[in-house]
């Protein structure tokens, strides 16, 4: 039942899933992932598409070290996500993974700079270095003049820019974007996707989860998931991207 895809044995893979199964015990046993193998090469841009309930959220949670596989192995930058140590997984999330959520998920009482610096706070960076890094990244995402604003003083697009800057703060092995344009209008969504493309162009590995074909086409390849398995992998070779 396992689908093997991509360059799972390649040395430059930053994320590897090897025959991963995830089952939930909700009264009966529900198999969210039924044997998935996938590798993300460093600097690659991958989109995951699938209908709701297909297992794409589960995949994202596993790669994001928010959850552990029932079977198989998930590694991010050679760290085993299946570790029993909660602190270790928190460490992986804090240093190797950058999350970009549909609902932004910014801390409401922290200003833009502090939100961007938050992952670094838990990685024990000094206050000065955190601020410096956060300001640098806010300028990079075009919010150099909004760095003292709180989330409620920012537009949806601006909030997502802050979230992207936060995702980049620890210089992660992979940026995980979960429906990053789901809560913003089309025009702003295009800007955000442009920013994500830039992020990838700067050498960051990006994993994008979406149910919109147009959004998925920003990636180099699209992994189609259905019923907990990889149905197909579509290579785009940059065809769907802006020139």
């Amino acid at each position: 039942m396992s689908s093997t895809a991509g360059t799972s044995s390649a040395d430059d893979s930053v994320v590897r899933l090897a025959d991963v199964r995830k089952t939930y015990d909700l009264g009966g046993t529900v198999e969210a992932l039924a044997g998935v193998s996938l590798a993300l090469a460093a600097g690659s841009y991958t989109a995951v598409m699938g209908p709701s309930g297909s297992g794409k959220s589960t995949l994202l949670n596993l790669v994001g070290a928010l959850d552990t596989p029932t079977e198989g192995r998930v590694t991010v930058a050679d760290h085993d996500v299946g570790t029993d140590s909660e602190a270790e997984r928190a460490g992986i999330r804090g240093t190797e993974i950058g999350f970009v959520f549909q609902t932004f998920n910014l801390m409401p009482r922290l200003d833009a700079t502090e939100n961007v610096a938050l992952p670094l706070l838990f990685d024990d960076w000094s206050r000065e270095r955190r601020r410096e890094r956060a300001r640098e990244l806010l300028s990079l995402v075009g919010l150099g003049d909004r760095r003292d604003h709180r989330p409620n003083e920012l537009s949806g697009g601006q909030r997502q820019r802050v979230a992207i800057a936060r995702a980049l703060a620890p210089d992660p092995a992979v940026v995980l974007a979960d429906e990053p344009t789901g809560n913003i209008d089309t025009e702003t969504g295009a800007e955000i996707m442009g920013l994500l493309d830039d992020v990838n162009a700067r050498g960051n590995t990006v994993l994008l989860v979406t149910h919109e074909r147009a959004i998925a086409e920003h990636a180099d390849r699209i992994v189609h998931i259905r019923d907990g398995t990889i149905e197909s992998i579509e290579s785009l070779d940059g065809a769907g991207r802006d020139a």
Binding site: G64, A87, A90, G91, F99, M107, P170
Partner: peptide
């Protein structure tokens, strides 16, 4: 939700 955010960006249980 804030706790979830903090955990997502690397906060350990003890933090």
């Amino acid at each position: 939700r804030e706790i979830g955010i903090m955990k997502a960006v690397g906060a350990r249980n003890r933090d």
